[in-house]
Design a protein around this nucleic acid. Sequence first.
DNA 1: GCCGAAGGTGAGCGCTCGCTTAGCGCGGAC
DNA 2: GTCCGCGCTAAGCGAGCGCTCACCTTCGGC
Lengths: 207, 207
Amino acid sequence: MTTAEETAGEAQPWGEVTPDAARRLLVAAVEAFAERGYHATTTRDIAGRAGMSPAALYIHYKTKEELLHRISRIGHEKALEILRVAARREGSATERLADAVSSFVRWHAGGRTTARVVQYELDSLGPDARAEILALRRRVDAEVRGIVEDGVASGEFDVADVQGTTLAVLSLCIDVARWFNVDGPRTPEEVGELYAGLVLRMVGAGR
Amino acid sequence: MTTAEETAGEAQPWGEVTPDAARRLLVAAVEAFAERGYHATTTRDIAGRAGMSPAALYIHYKTKEELLHRISRIGHEKALEILRVAARREGSATERLADAVSSFVRWHAGGRTTARVVQYELDSLGPDARAEILALRRRVDAEVRGIVEDGVASGEFDVADVQGTTLAVLSLCIDVARWFNVDGPRTPEEVGELYAGLVLRMVGAGR
DNA sequence: GCCGAAGGTGAGCGCTCGCTTAGCGCGGAC
DNA sequence: GTCCGCGCTAAGCGAGCGCTCACCTTCGGC
């Protein structure tokens, strides 16, 4: 039901997917997977949302799972890039962590449709695709852990369990995709600001 | 594959479900839903895990969805009870919040099988069942918010956005069910302790 | 003007799904 | 001993699934 407006919240989404018909199918799949879940979505539903016949899907994708795989990889790459930009900018560890959390949360809230699929449908992938995505997740974890370690080294942060705290920070951000409601009282920007402040407290910044 | 050991981590699970055959089916459904998700689980799989024929399921439950509904209600009631006990014990808001978080997290980590179904398969319920469960969730939220409000009133906590912070605390705890791994490096007790400390920092306790 | 490739459709295959139905075995009442 | 009723099974129904196949259109190159 929401085709243009909701996905427009994401910055130029899926621009790298060509040709046009393949992108329309992929966008339709993202919406359907986010609404109903991978297993509850039919190939007929995806094709119908894209305005095509059921058979058209198989011209551009070998299986329904390949669609999920493509969505998941592109989404994880986008998430990783967001964190890489925040981690590599100039500034203190405090500033970089706040930036990382607020932009990561904005992505999960604003692009909730995509983020839901990316974060919660991993188990529906086969072993090989799943392993590839898990490797991307470890790089996501490493980016955040790097900032936390920098802050501990510089004395800005006070963290006893770096790995556990990093896990908690990422977990907090990712779960936004589960509960965030576009019609709710908060904008993605507001949640990003709130969460950045909470995370700085979690790492003991500014004590 | 894991029948006795994993569910044994939960305290006397599903003791209220009778008769015995109905309980065995329900436990089998919890395991299957947690492993594969509701839509990817077949009624034949559930019956098979319980050592019965596919038709046996329909003697005790009207539909597959009724199984999920029962699991979800019992699970939410258990979660709510855990928080009620922590919220109503004697002690400062700081002590009660730490208790609530650590016991809530222990439940999500130790009973990850159940918690996964309870927290992540809500969308697979029909509108009526879903509305009933959402009412239980609001009560869960109210319990935690009550503790946070008490802490703010007594001056123990420093929280600008009580509702938003409560949401974040619950979100952090719930997401444990997604990432916790029984074979991982941490016990449920360790995660509970770690998270209680992080949450106290989030609410600005002991500054 | 003709041709081949690319991109699409309508029909439908084989299969498995949730669920139903007819009937079997067996323990307790009398 | 007989019979009832409960708990269960074997078999299978109609429907909808992922996916395929034979065929049709459109269009750039020559």
